[in-house]
Design a protein around this nucleic acid. Structure first.
Lengths: 107, 107
DNA sequence: AAATTATATCGTAATATTGCAATGTTACAA
DNA sequence: TTGTAACATTGCAATATTACGATATAATTT
């Protein structure tokens, strides 16, 4: 196998897992942190910052972007990636509602 | 490759990614939710609840347990898995401090 | 002790992820 | 229009993850 059986879970759980997956790689966390620290951001800057090749960074950026976490300002040949704060906060809310809805009275 | 280059990131980032990884599979989220709803929990119950085989559930439980998210009460042949609420809250704090420390003023 | 029950571990197949070199693409510059 | 700089895409190799059947283990029950 190797593939997750997504069809057996409720949508809310799959959504939560999809969100977590974006953060499940250190490169993507580092990229998000770096972007959030900049006024504007150019992909090549990230390549210098983090020790990964340009294609690899580009790939991670795609994952982040597909999750809706980026807003792009396409000015000139350098693309400015920015954090989509609204979407980012949405993620935080989903995660927190999961945490807050989960308790334990056993043990 | 296929392996993440963990050595190029600060510890805090690797820790954050490791936490996210636990939640990056719907089965593990479903298991955590199920455990938190029960007074006590037996693995076989989870197998009935979620549509995965016993070995697969056991494997996911190991991942959750290795992350320190379970406290076990070993009474008899049925093992009682319980949520380690303290650890769980720790995870929430790490995630939230990441979210709150990340903003954007570009675009 | 033998059977039973609940869970863990092993082995293996299928698929996903990570990473990079090579190559495309696109927009500006000269 | 010919470069060139900044990404994106493709193709591939290495490793990780997911899932399950078969089997082991460990505690109860009979």
């Amino acid at each position: 196998m190797g593939a997750s059986k997504l069809d057996i879970y409720p949508e809310s759980i799959n959504q939560m897992a999809a969100i977590a997956k974006v953060f499940a790689h250190p490169a993507r966390i580092a990229i998000l942190q770096y972007i959030s620290k900049q006024e504007s951001c150019i992909c090549n800057d990230i390549v210098d910052e983090i020790g990964l090749s340009q294609p690899t960074i580009s790939q991670h950026l795609k994952v982040i972007n597909d999750a809706g976490l980026l807003k792009g300002n396409f000015k000139g040949k350098s693309i400015c990636y920015c954090l989509n704060v609204e979407r980012f906060k949405e993620f935080q809310i989903v995660l927190n509602s999961f945490f807050n809805g989960t308790t334990s009275n056993c043990c």
